[in-house]
Design a protein around this nucleic acid. Sequence first.
DNA 1: CTGAAAGCGCTTACAG
DNA 2: CTGAAAGCGCTTACAG
Lengths: 346, 346
Amino acid sequence: MATLREVADKAGVSMPVVSAYLRGSKTVRMSEDTRRRVAAAIDEVGYVPNLAARSLRTSRTNVIAVVVPKLDNPALAEMLRGIYDAAQELGYVVMLGDAARLTSGSQMLEHLLAHGTVDGVIVRRSSSLDTRVLADMAERGLPVLFLDDESLHDFTWLALDDAAGIRLATSHLIDLGHVQIDFLGGLDPIPAAEFTRIRYEGYVTALKERGLAPRPPIMSGQAPEDGYEAFSSLVAPRVADRRKDAPTALVVNNVTTATGVLAAAYDAGISVPGELSVVGYLDTAAASMARPRLTTVRMPMYELGHRGVAALSEIVKGEHVRSAVLADIAPTLIRRDSTAPPAGQK
Amino acid sequence: MATLREVADKAGVSMPVVSAYLRGSKTVRMSEDTRRRVAAAIDEVGYVPNLAARSLRTSRTNVIAVVVPKLDNPALAEMLRGIYDAAQELGYVVMLGDAARLTSGSQMLEHLLAHGTVDGVIVRRSSSLDTRVLADMAERGLPVLFLDDESLHDFTWLALDDAAGIRLATSHLIDLGHVQIDFLGGLDPIPAAEFTRIRYEGYVTALKERGLAPRPPIMSGQAPEDGYEAFSSLVAPRVADRRKDAPTALVVNNVTTATGVLAAAYDAGISVPGELSVVGYLDTAAASMARPRLTTVRMPMYELGHRGVAALSEIVKGEHVRSAVLADIAPTLIRRDSTAPPAGQK
DNA sequence: CTGAAAGCGCTTACAG
DNA sequence: CTGAAAGCGCTTACAG
């Protein structure tokens, strides 16, 4: 394994020169000839830098960890693109991790908490993490940024404007003429999931500002099966029986959940949007592949990821960063085929 | 930032004792009293190990990188579970990466190729990687294991028995009475994707052994949109016109693709399984949420991941590992609602 | 069984 | 502008 020493000897220069060459230092100047000799020597001995040595010396790794719940959540794909792009711009390598594996006492936690491994961590949704894990991170003083999670007081966070997003979804239904609108996905199975409360409040606000009465949330988890289950047991019977209080439209907390709702409606023989309109929150490829195609609200996920890395980078540098909601980018309604005016009003 | 030195001084022991304590060394024995004093000192000074220093010294990081194309591919979730479980058992931390970001000259490649960063790399599907990247890894002598990819000669790989899996899917259709069976997803857009060739051959074998004539593959990429597109333009017209050569059943290379096929069939007014049976390869939650529920073939993805880590660990230790197909675990047919006997034969 | 010393491969002040 | 030296925080042979 070739070292800097060998390269320097072979090139007939000192180690600092090779080091400066490798780092592309602008302060150290060297002649074209020196540059060539160093490059040739590196090539000749097959030199590969040892980043552990560099990190030990500089106490920087240029690696950031990104921890997300449910890696295969398609809604995250765009956020990750934003993260990767920003990381590249700022010279960071991204190390992705599964929140489910970041438990108290886990190898992964030890790794993140140790020195010389990562410069900082981005966590999507703190509710996926054990409180002891959060406490460990706080105590260690590890630079952490939370994404899309406004419930933290001890940490910095950046969040989507969930209230505005859900408000847009709800307003769309009201604009179509719906009056009896339900909100599904009310509460996360994980306690203290602040973000679902905020989403529900967006729904409440939209109804109230149009003089309509909000209804209690229909509890459901996020997975398609959860949406299927909740819809089948709590919504479908009311719609099928044409009960007076049956909803004619549904705001679903999450596209993933909405997929399950659509399957459940199909199985119950409920026509969407004929008998029931459905809007999903967040937009994914699955939404346009569903039948009927799902109307959704698109949020600035890319920007969330991109700005998250920028913010973490500030925190790593020791600067103070204020938690914030990304309110400057408006949500967009992606109108597809799952919403229509209520029956009898076409 | 507390160091080993400080802990040792505070506990009144030497650094090697603290080091041994931290690593849980069994060769070095120390009294209960010493143990307690060291533990107290660690706690008191808030000691956190520096893993860069340890790596520099031991030239081991206990980190493995796992590189996959399309992180949100749900078919990978189970494989990743296997990888995480095995990593935990063997004391590795997993660092996940996106193949799309592992390009020639990228920060990530530099990171992986450097010393003191990761002990080895697992790559799912080499076709997602630039050939220059592959060459760099080979030249550097980085321990690499490829998963589900039999096209490599210079590297070690572990693969699913794709031929057996597709054969099972095809046989199921034949058992139902189908004769005109097409294979969709024939070739990957990426050239030299050996795995699709093997899958197609599984289809050919199944037909031939039952005396039926294989038909040329219907080209399609993997994404739902690709399946939608290919089906709409190449299959739907033939089925809708009731042409003589129209397939009555379809083997789809991938569940993800099958989702798009189902949407396309719906849009073309083709009833599944009434007019056309569809089997998807690999099983995901989306398969059971699709309407009709998709019949699929389940492959040992968990084991693939689990054994992959074990194999990489051997390679890291310098042992020779033979490339192999996981033929000892039989594929399973998950029969749902998208397959039935051909029309007129019920 | 315990402790002092060497050294992993870098970078960065510092002296020339 | 260049080079010799110190030192980042560990672990591991080695001497006592």
